[in-house]
Each structure stands twice: as C-alpha cells, then as structure tokens.
Design a protein around this nucleic acid. Structure first.
Lengths: 173, 173
DNA sequence: ATGGGACGATAACAATTGTTAAGAAATACG
DNA sequence: CGTATTTCTTAACAATTGTTATCGTCCCAT
C-alpha cells in the first residue's frame, strides 16, 4: 500500500494537531482520510454523555470513518487525537478520483474493507466470549503498546468497564 | 436481488433438513450459500463447550459464512437449523462463476458485504452501549418475531447472559 | 400412553461490576 | 517553579450477574 500511495503523494496535505482534537464528529460525513505519521488517535461513540472508546490507532495506521467516507452516510463514531499528532490527509474528492482512475487501488480498497470487517468481527467475538478480566489479559498479551501509551480510563471504556472496575481488575493480578 | 437471482435459478438445489442440523461447522470452509424458504437458522460460536448465538435468520434471508465463502478461510462460526427447514442452496463454485460472468452481481455482492459490515457494527455498538436488560427491551421493540419463535436460552446467549439471568430480567418487568 | 429430554422458573449464595465520593499521584502548562 | 488539571486508586454500598441445583411443564418419539 505504501508504494501504491506514492503515486498520489502530491494529493496529500500535512496537518499538525494538539492532543484532544476532534478530527471527525459522530453524525457528520467523513470528508478526509488520515494517515498517522506521529502520535495516536482513538475512535469513540457517545452514550448518553459518556464516551466509549472503540479503537486505537498509531503511527503508520490509516484512519477514517471508512463507511462514511465511501458512502456519504453520517459517521457512527468520532475520531480524536490522544496526543499531539502529525498527520497526512487526503480529501474525499481527491481520493475518489484516484479510485476512479486506478482500478487496482479500488480493488485494494475492497480488500481493506474486508480486512476491517473480519477484524471487527473478531473483536466482537472476543467481546462475547470473554469477561473484562480476560479481555484485559488479552490486551496485555496482544497489544502491550496500547497499555503503555494510552491513559487507563480510555482503555477501561474500550474493555467495556468503568475506570474504577479496571483499576480493581489490575489489582487482582 | 430477487430478480437478479432469477438469472441463475437453475443453479439452485432444494434442501430439506430437520431441526438442529449443522449446515456449516465453525473452522470449516463454507462451500454453500443458503436461501431460507421456510424455517429458521442461527449462527453461533463455541466458547469452551458453551455455545453463543450470534444471529438469527428467517424466511427470505440469505445466509452463508460470507467471509469464508468469498475468501476460502475457515469460518469463525457455525450455522445450524433451529426448526425443520426448506432451503435453496448454491455451490461456491457455481456462485463464483456467476460473479465472474456478471460484474453487476459482483458489485451487488460488495454492497451486500458493506451492509453486513455496517449492520454488525451497529449490533456491536448496541452491545457496548446497553446492558442486557436494555438489549432485551430493544429486541422486543425491534424484532418481536425472534422472541416469539426462538427458544429463550438461545436468546439469552445472543444477549450475552445466562438463561437464568434472562429469566430474571423478564421477571423484572 | 409414557418415559426421556428439552425448556423455563426459582432459590440461595458467590463473584463481579456499577456508583459515588474522597484523596493521592502524576502531568501539563503558563 | 508552582498551580490546575488529569489520572488513578481505594473504600463502601447497591445492583446485577454468574453458578449450581431443584422442580414443574411441555413435547416428542418409541
């Protein structure tokens, strides 16, 4: 993908944002795709004023509300920086032109979607199978960098528990 | 879709199965797509010997482990009949031929995948936002036919609780 | 019809999590 | 450097859920 992206490098802009910047608001339509050069982001959904983190993204990751970006429907979630970030951005319009011109990029896009689908299904199943304690253990095992880098209360909502409960879970070990 | 399917009606076979028949085993590769003419099915995942129902399907629904069917990867879940069923089946091979011959069907397939993706994302978010009690209320509201038709312990695991707990939730109303 | 299995309700107790509040520790930032 | 904010921990109590077991009912198949 990195190589393929070189073809339209000139369409990218550089964007620098401080921590806690909303890059896309839940309910809005995604008009920009971001590539993380430095820093980290999260996606989250609002639940009666309490926010629930659904995913974390780091250097090298591509992030957009892809469903919204591709279909012009309102995004189900918000995108927010957790640290000061350096991002590369491409507009929906430019990206659509690329897709129209280069069928192999379009094909890659479908594959990307497919991977995301499978991935979110696996996360869901892990959610169904495991209690918060086990999910936390799994997170330590598979994504230790998240725990080292992200404040704990974001991880709590990602695991589906309150910060208080996560603190207790950590203490049980 | 129904019209488009008429084009390759001759590729379908009729299959009649009793209740509790496994049509696809978790871990196997899906070689058949099913269309439900009569009866209902569920998908489920195994968790240390206890099964967790992930979805229900009824008359008119199309069902396959679509991720497995399209990519030859092992299915993450099993498919099983809950009632005696009358099904129409098409083989992976025949279906792939159709996809290769008719690009508009292929495009429809991608859209179908996209809808499934969005749908499963919504289900996941409802899971994150609501407790079992609220999810049950939501199910009564949005899919009352499921409750009327499917034994309660399947619904319990679908909601993420034990049958005992669902019985209590029902009694709280 | 009848014996066995599936299904659901209920009870009692344990374990986990939520809620609210208070305080300590770390961090950000002027 | 010092203050304000954020973050995490701990406590106490309430609410929910899990676990195990028992019992009654219904349905199916022999």
């Amino acid at each position: 993908m990195a190589d393929e992206l070189d073809i339209f490098k000139h369409l990218f802009n550089r964007l620098e944002v401080p921590a806690k910047t909303i890059l896309l608001q839940e309910g809005e339509i995604s008009r920009t795709m971001f590539f993380i050069e430095k820093g980290c982001l999260r996606t989250w959904i609002n639940n009666d004023g309490v926010d629930i983190t659904t995913q974390f993204f780091f250097e090298g990751d591509r992030i957009s509300s892809i469903e919204s970006f591709m279909t012009d429907q309102p995004s189900l979630y918000s995108i927010e920086s957790l640290e000061p970030c350096i991002l590369k951005t491409i507009s929906q319009k430019d990206f659509q032109n690329v897709l129209a011109d280069l069928p192999e990029i379009k094909e890659e896009m479908y594959k990307h979607l497919f991977r995301r689908f499978l991935n979110s299904q696996k996360i869901f199943y892990s959610y169904l199978k495991n209690n918060p304690q086990k999910r936390y253990a799994e997170l330590i095992e598979e994504h230790p960098h998240i725990i080292q880098r992200v404040p704990q209360h974001y991880i709590a909502s990602y695991l589906g528990v309150t910060p208080v409960s996560l603190s207790r879970i950590r203490n049980r070990r």
